[in-house]
């Protein structure tokens, strides 16, 4: 874990403790993915609506706190403003609203919507003969939804080589409807598939920056709660829990102990 991603996880813990909200384990599984995305895509935090920017959609919208903290790290807004997370007056809801937060491209929350929107955006850029790209981060649990695969079929049928699907394989699916070998599934649906360690920032950045002539799917193998053994060992208990003061100190300690 490089220092930036450790700091982002500390911010997630701190905001969750302060606000009483947060899906911490699922946020921790995507920190490196989000960091790699914003390190790679064309974007301008000073001008979030820049008309040459690439588009990123967080389809697994319940990881919004990780999204906000990474965006704050890249300069979209001040980290302090995210501390209002989930409160009535806050613009930073537990599922992001594109009309409230600059740089959020789509309001998500109900699962299985992000890829369809991304397909429409990627198609729009194709029609306009524009080189902009679209990236959608989806969850493995989310991929129980049929609409994920419906949209993937449409994307490959349209040969949208400006679309990258990143699949957070954090084993959420193992609780219910299991998706065995997601890489083979995306391949069967017509995607160019690569697999990556979802916590290897350098490897992820390299994969995200590669384009091809097909819809790209990156199966990122991650751990829910990555960075804190307590979260990894007690995923169900921590699914929506925010830490108490003593739990916060313990989790911060576990993060500090992690040498990578």
């Amino acid at each position: 874990m490089i220092p930036n991603c450790k700091d982002i996880r500390k911010s997630i813990l701190s905001i969750s403790r302060e606000s009483g909200h947060g899906h911490i384990p699922t946020c921790f599984s995507v920190v490196e993915i989000l960091y790699a995305v914003y390190s790679t895509i064309r974007h301008d935090p000073e001008n979030p609506s820049w008309d040459e920017r690439d588009i990123f959609i967080l389809s697994k919208g319940h990881a919004s706190l990780a999204h906000y903290t990474v965006m704050a790290h890249f300069g979209y807004f001040d980290m302090q403003s995210v501390y209002s997370y989930g409160s009535f007056a806050s613009d930073f809801g537990c599922h992001a609203d594109r009309l409230k937060v600059p740089g959020i491209e789509a309001s998500t929350g109900s699962l299985g919507h992000g890829i369809g929107l991304a397909v429409g955006m990627a198609l729009a850029f194709k029609i306009r003969k524009n080189s902009r790209r679209v990236y959608a981060l989806i969850g493995d649990g989310e991929s129980n939804e049929g609409s994920v695969w419906e949209a993937t079929m449409v994307a490959t049928n349209l040969k949208l080589n400006n679309l990258t699907i990143i699949y957070d394989n954090n084993m959420s699916h193992s609780r219910g409807l299991q998706i065995h070998n997601p890489a083979e599934r995306f391949k069967a649906f017509g995607c160019k598939v690569t697999e990556a360690d979802g916590h290897d920032l350098i490897g992820l950045t390299s994969e995200i920056s590669k384009n091809g002539d097909m819809v790209k799917a990156i199966v990122a193998h991650t751990k829910k709660g990555y960075g804190c053994q307590t979260l990894i060992d007690n995923q169900y208990q921590w699914h929506r829990k925010s830490p108490t003061e003593s739990e916060f100190e313990k989790l911060i300690g576990e993060l500090d102990e992690k040498a990578i």
């Binding site: 929107l117 198609l123 949209a151």
Partner: peptide
């Protein structure tokens, strides 16, 4: 031809794709 798509029998995605096109200034 570049503005005509018979996307098939997938109504959920038809709407989402329409919304995505709309987000970029099209009138689907």
């Amino acid at each position: 031809p570049d503005r005509f798509y018979n996307m098939g029998i997938c109504e959920n995605t038809l709407i989402s794709v329409g919304a995505g096109l709309s987000s970029q200034g099209f009138s689907p």
